[in-house]
Design a binder for these strands. Structure first.
Length: 478
RNA sequence: GGCCACGUGGCGGAGUGGUGACGCAGCGGACUGCAAAUCCGUUUACCCCGGUUCGAGUCCGGGCGUGGCCUCCA
C-alpha cells in the first residue's frame, strides 16, 4: 500500500518514502501546559494519533518512532503561575496530568500503550525542561558557525545567515519586513531575527548558560528535542497550520544550520484551523471549548474523536453542537454491529478500502464513507459467514482510527444526557413500568385505543417506547 | 497593508477534467395493530464573472465571502 501525504514544504501530495523503513520517525508539536486543552489543541493530537496508528499498521509496530513534546517552559506559563501565585512546576505538572486525562478519553494512544518495558520506546513525550543542555549545545553550535549572535544577554538567530530562510512558509524576508507591524527590539541586528535564549529575572525560571542565567526561546526546544530523540534528519513533522510561521520555519532554520545544512524534517504536515459555531474561537469572544467541558457535559471521547475525523485534517472545521450530535448518531450505526461479540477474531486485518482511504493523505472522511459501505456489504440477508467476516473487518477498521471501544455505546442515552443533563429528567420509573404493563395488557386484548393513549401519556412524560420481539423497552425521548 | 488557505445539495462532508462518494434530514417501501428502532430504495449540488477544452465543482485569470499567519492566543 502506497502512503501519500501532502507536504507543506512542496505544497504537493507526495508518495511517502521513509528514510529508513525499519524506523519511521515523526515529531509533532505538543501543548504548552498552562491551561486545559481546548478543542483546537485536541485536533493535531487526534489527527497525528491516527497517522501514528496508520504508520504502525503499514510499517509494523516496532518500526515507528513518535515524539510529541510537552512545552513546560514558556512566558505564558510564567504569567499564569504568577497570576495564580503558585509554583511553575505545580502548574505544569497539573496541566500535563489534565492533558493526559483528556486525550486518553479521546482514544489517543499513550506511551504506556505502545512502549515495551526495557525496549527502545516507540512513543516519547519529551519535556522542554529536560532538554536544556541540548538546547544550550545547539545554540553554542549556531554561534560558532556564525548563524547566531549574543546581544544584551540574549542570543538571537541571524535570519540573513540562511539563504533559504522562509522556504517552508514561502515568505521572503523582504515581504515579511514590509508587512511587519511590530516594533523591533533594539538589540536585534535584523528585525526578523528571533530569540534562541533570553535572560531571566531572579523570579523567573532560569538555567545557567554561557550567556548568563536565562531560558530558551520558543522554537529551540523542538529543534533540540527532535534531534535528541529522532536524529538530525527525520521523516515527518506535524502540527497546526498556525505554527507554520514563525515556529516551524524557525525550527528548520535552527536545525539545518546546526547540522551543517543537512535537511531537517522531510515531510511537513499541518492540520487546519477550527471555528466554533461559525466564529473564531478566542478568549475575547469567550467561546473557548475545552475538551474537559465536552466530556463533563456528557459527550463521550469517541464522539468527539469521530466528529473531528469526519472532516479531512487539512480542512477547516466548524465545531458545532449539531455536528457532535450528528457524529453521535452516526457512530451508533457502527456500534450496532461491533458491540455484541461472541466469536473469536480470526484476523486483525482492517478492510483494505479503509487502509487505502487513510493512505491517501489521511482521508478520514473517505474512510468513514468506506465504513458505511462495508456495513452495507453484510448488513441484511447475508450468510453468517459473510456477516462474521464483515463485522470483524469493521471492528479492525474502527480500531485503526482509534474507535475500537464502542461496547455499550448508546447514542440515545448520550442525546438524553446532553439534553437533560447528567442527572436526566425526573422520571418515576415505577410509574413508567406500571403504564407499560397496562399498555401491554391492552395490546394483548387488542385495545389499541387505550394502548395508544398510554403511549401518548408516556410521551408527555418524555418517554419513548420501542416494541420489540422480547417486549417493550423505553428510553428518555430526545 | 503583505503572504497563505478555504467556499460542494436543506445540513455535514469526500472527490477534483468525461459513469450524481458517503452520512443526517426529506420522500417512497418492508417490518409493525399503528408507531419507534432497523432494513431497502430515492429527490436535491459544486460562491460570482470571464477564459482554456470536444467536455470544467475539477485547470487559468479576475471578483466577492470566510478564515489563518505576519503580533500573546492553536
Amino acid at each position: 500500500m502506497t502512503l501519500k501525504l501532502y507536504n507543506t514544504l512542496t505544497r504537493k501530495k507526495e508518495v511517502f518514502e521513509p528514510q529508513d523503513a525499519s524506523n519511521v520517525r515523526m515529531y509533532v508539536c505538543g501543548p504548552t501546559v498552562y491551561d486545559y486543552a481546548h478543542i483546537g489543541n485536541a485536533r493535531p493530537v487526534i489527527v497525528f494519533d491516527v497517522l501514528f496508528r496508520l504508520l504502525r499498521h503499514l510499517y509494523g509496530e516496532d518500526h515507528v518512532t513518535y515524539a510529541r513534546n510537552i512545552t513546560d517552559v514558556d512566558d505564558k506559563i510564567i504569567a499564569r503561575a504568577a497570576d495564580e501565585d503558585r509554583a511553575i512546576s505545580d502548574l505544569t505538572e497539573e496541566t500535563t496530568r489534565q492533558f493526559h486525562d483528556d486525550i486518553r478519553a479521546l482514544g489517543v494512544l499513550m506511551p504506556e500503550d505502545v512502549n515495551t518495558p526495557g525496549a527502545t520506546p516507540s512513543f516519547i513525550e519529551p519535556k522542554a525542561t529536560e532538554h536544556i543542555p541540548q538546547m544550550i549545545a545547539m545554540i553554542e553550535c549556531l554561534i560558532a558557525s556564525g548563524h547566531a549572535y549574543e546581544a544584551e544577554g540574549h542570543v538571537l538567530f541571524d535570519v540573513t545567515s540562511k539563504d533559504d530562510y522562509g522556504k517552508l512558509a514561502r515568505r521572503s524576508l523582504d515581504e515579511m519586513e514590509a508587512g511587519a507591524r511590530v516594533e523591533v527590539a533594539p538589540y536585534k541586528k535584523g528585525q526578523m531575527d528571533f530569540v534562541l535564549w533570553k535572560p531571566s529575572l531572579a523570579k523567573q525560571p532560569g538555567w545557567e548558560s554561557p550567556w548568563g542565567r536565562g531560558r530558551p526561546g520558543w522554537h529551540i526546544e523542538c529543534s533540540a528535542m527532535s534531534e535528541a530523540h529522532l536524529g538530525e534528519s527525520f521523516d515527518i513533522h506535524g502540527g497546526g497550520i498556525d505554527l507554520l510561521f514563525p515556529h516551524h520555519e524557525n525550527e528548520v532554520a535552527q536545525s539545518e544550520c546546526a547540522h551543517g545544512g543537512k535537511p531537517f524534517a522531510r515531510y511537513w504536515l499541518h492540520n487546519g484551523f477550527l471555528q466554533v459555531e461559525g466564529e473564531k474561537m478566542s478568549k475575547s469572544l469567550g467561546n473557548f471549548v475545552t475538551v474537559r467541558e465536552l466530556l463533563d457535559k456528557g459527550w463521550p471521547g469517541e464522539v468527539i474523536r469521530f466528529a473531528m475525523l469526519k472532516t479531512h485534517y487539512r480542512q477547516p472545521i466548524n465545531w458545532t453542537q449539531k455536528g457532535l450530535m450528528d457524529a453521535a448518531l452516526e457512530l451508533q450505526t457502527f456500534a450496532n454491529w461491533t458491540s455484541d461479540e461472541d466469536d473469536e477474531p480470526t484476523s486483525d486485518e482492517p478492510a483494505s478500502s479503509i487502509v487505502a482511504a487513510l493512505s491517501d493523505d489521511l482521508n478520514t472522511p473517505l474512510a468513514v464513507a468506506e465504513l458505511h459501505k462495508l456495513v452495507k456489504t453484510f448488513s441484511p440477508g447475508h450468510s453468517d459467514e459473510v456477516k462474521q467476516k464483515g463485522i470483524e473487518q469493521l471492528r479492525n477498521s474502527l480500531r485503526l482510527i482509534g474507535l475500537g471501544e464502542l461496547d455499550g455505546y448508546d447514542a440515545n442515552k448520550i442525546a438524553s444526557t446532553i439534553t437533560y443533563g447528567r442527572d436526566g429528567p425526573q422520571i418515576d420509573e415505577a410509574r413508567v413500568g406500571q403504564l407499560i404493563a397496562e399498555r401491554t395488557a391492552a395490546r394483548k386484548t387488542k385495545d389499541f385505543k387505550k394502548s395508544d393513549e398510554i403511549r401518548d401519556q408516556l410521551a408527555e412524560m418524555g418517554i419513548a417506547l420501542k416494541d420489540g420481539p422480547d417486549g417493550t423497552t423505553w428510553e428518555v425521548a430526545r
